[in-house]
């Protein structure tokens, strides 16, 4: 059985706001009966204040689908429609003290029901752009549809590419066979044979502005160039982190140690270590030298007040810099 949090169990055993809502003026039906979960969310909005005065749900689904529905109604009651639309699926999951990766889609369904109900209230048609496939990577909850799309859009060729773009396969690696199967299928559509020996393409979703010149110039970088390069790499991984509601910021550089501050959903996330590992890999690839990425909260106390720029000004790492080894 799934490892559900106490909060999930509580909302499943005693769901709040169940049933048909009298006087509802917004109803959203989402889900898929073939997948085994479907949800109807009813909201009663005060047309003058735009405040959601009441909300209720009816759900066909598993324990976490029912708990997510219950949590959603509790979260949005008393909110304005505008604020309610800012509720993310992560907010629903957080409210329940987390959901197992296989069950995150229940919180996604909750958020979509909310969008559909608000659209219904406003009298506009809501179109779902959500498509869900079988879960491939359990470490990062990435499904087959997302992997397929990402391969198509970005012309990916290798498992490493897929990991770089979606994080899928970046944890326990058990899904690599599954990712290879998807690559075989998608590449075949384009008349390309999957080559397991193929090297990963440039890891960045968007090539770094300085990447081209950097690869040509093998001469040691100046201090400022080096920090800019590190910053550019950190910048390039931020969009991915933001997709999951997190973020990262470069705090300091000391020799071959890079201090990065993880914020938002990344802070305290059990996957933060893997994100750190991934950015470390990218930095090493880009700079061609050994780099160690350390979360800023593990930074030695003496360094803390200093900013990255200040560190550069002290010239602390200049003398100890390890020459690039290509």
């Amino acid at each position: 059985m799934w490892e559900y949090s106490e909060k999930v169990k509580e909302h499943f055993y005693q769901p709040r706001n169940v049933g048909v809502l009298e006087g509802a003026n917004g109803v959203g039906d989402v889900g898929s009966i073939s997948c085994g979960d479907a949800l109807r969310l009813s909201i009663k909005v005060n047309p003058d204040s735009e405040i959601i005065e009441n909300a209720s749900f009816q759900t066909f689904g598993c324990g976490s689908a029912i708990a997510s529905s219950s949590a959603l109604t509790e979260i949005i009651k008393g909110m304005t429609v505008e604020d309610a639309l800012k509720v993310t699926n992560q907010d629903i999951a957080d409210y329940l003290d987390g959901l197992p990766p296989e069950k995150m889609h229940c919180s996604v369904m909750g958020r979509e029901a909310l969008q559909a109900a608000v659209a219904n209230y406003r009298g506009v048609e809501w179109k779902d752009d959500h498509e869900e496939g079988a879960l491939v990577c359990k470490c990062f909850a990435v499904d087959a549809v997302m992997i397929e799309e990402t391969i198509r859009v970005n012309g990916l060729r290798s498992v490493q590419d897929v990991t770089n773009y979606t994080k899928a396969g970046g944890g326990c690696c058990a899904c690599h066979e599954g990712i290879e199967e998807i690559l075989v299928k998608v590449l075949a559509e384009q008349g390309i044979a999957f080559d397991p020996e193929a090297a990963a393409k440039a890891a960045e979703p968007e090539p770094l502005p300085i990447a081209a010149s950097a690869k040509a110039a093998k001469a040691p970088l100046t201090l400022v160039q080096r920090i800019r390069r590190i910053e550019a790499v950190i910048e390039s991984i931020r969009p991915n982190l933001r997709m999951d509601g997190g973020d990262a910021e470069l705090v300091d550089v000391d020799g071959n140690t890079v201090y990065v501050k993880m914020t938002g959903a990344c802070s305290g996330c059990s996957m933060a270590a893997m994100t750190i590992g991934g950015s470390q890999q990218r930095l090493m690839e880009d700079l061609g030298e050994f780099i160690k990425v350390i979360p800023a909260d593990k930074m030695p106390a003496a360094r803390e007040p200093r900013t990255a720029a200040a560190a550069g000004a002290y010239g602390g790492f200049g003398a100890r810099r390890i020459p690039p080894t290509f």
Binding site: G19, D29, Q58, T59, F60, H130
Partner: peptide, 24 residues
């Protein structure tokens, strides 16, 4: 009681039509 397919004390009339969520 929680199910959108269920009414007072039986399935809603034409359950598949009464509740047809957006994505299939």
């Amino acid at each position: 009681k929680l199910s959108p397919y269920w009414g007072e004390d039986g399935p809603v009339a034409a359950p598949e039509k009464a509740f047809a969520p957006v994505y299939a």
